[in-house]
Simulated assay, not measured.
Amino acid sequence: MSFGKDLVKLVKLRLTFLVVFSASISFLIGSQIVTATNVNGVINWVNWAKLIVGGFLITGAANGFNEIIEKDLDRLMTRTADRPLPAGRMTNGQALVLSLLMGMGGTYLLGSLNLLTGFLSVFAILLYAFVYTPLKQKSPISVFVGAIPGALPPLIGYVAANPTIDQIALILFGIQFIWQFPHFWAIAWVLDDDYKLAGFRLLPTGKRDRVSAVITFVFTLVLVPVSLLPTFYKFGGYYVGGVSLVMSLIFLYQAFVLMRTLEIKSARKLMFGSFLYLPVVQLMFLFDFLGKK
């Protein structure tokens, strides 16, 4: 296998793309806020490009550190056994050098936007790689810890354009934070047998049971009012509110089906529903925000 393909696996390209997409949408929203340094509320496309590249490097670094730490565990799981480290195609030293270079390069680019963006980026790497990763074997609380760095991309994207953690920034963070729980637990339900081979405990009770499904449903229910916060606080109009409500109710129905059936195929539908939910809601927030400007 080529080095390029191994690098793609090391940085978890699909996950990295989702992270960067989320940050970039929030950057565009933050760019519309009139500030002392952006009096016309215009988009700085050079800074947007820095965010894209820096965000990719930071996320790739965090994933690289994660895989170094979990190399022996990845070897035990079918889903991860072909990653470059457990498969022996890349050494720990090579992965460490690549991850450090990506981390330093990403921190430099994001820090050049403003110090708050740089600080949040470093915090995300440390929390994901060195707190969340070792917790995955110890307790389901790891999902709560992991949801914090997982929800930081929209916050980082927003403050990259508007270096203030204001109400809009917290709403962007809050939507992605709550979304993480049904998203994580749906994946954990589908892959529970594989995760158990490595000793990972990611479902709320540690197993596929009614209580885990009920907790997943409750968090998906909480997402309904949270997704309506942009409309409630008048940052968005009825379009984003209507689309967010419809998407949240579809997502909630999928969680209800899992709670009723406890079947892997229901969890898989919820998992795919989570992949669709977040970009649709974030894009609608952006379009509606632009329409109100």
Rank of each mutant, 00 (worst) to 15 (best):
T91F: 10
F17H: 13
G150H: 08
A186I: 11
K5H: 10
A188Y: 02
V97G: 06
K12D: 07
Q176I: 11
A81G: 04
A129E: 05
L115I: 14
V218G: 05
V39T: 12
I125C: 03
Q167N: 12
G236V: 12
K12Y: 12
P182G: 07
E67A: 03
I43E: 04
F177A: 02
G291V: 02
L203K: 07
V145H: 07
P84D: 01
L172F: 08
A186E: 02
P140S: 00
I175G: 09
I250V: 15
I43G: 01
I178T: 09
T59F: 08
T231V: 11
I29Y: 02
P279N: 03
L191Y: 15
L73V: 06
R201G: 01
M77F: 10
A36Y: 14
I171C: 01
T205G: 00
N92K: 14
D209R: 05
L76K: 15
P154Y: 08
I52K: 10
V145A: 06
V240S: 13
A49N: 07
Y277T: 09
V243Y: 02
I215W: 05
G64F: 04
V11E: 08
M1A: 13
G105Q: 06
Q137L: 01
F275E: 10
V20A: 08
F119Q: 08
V280Y: 01
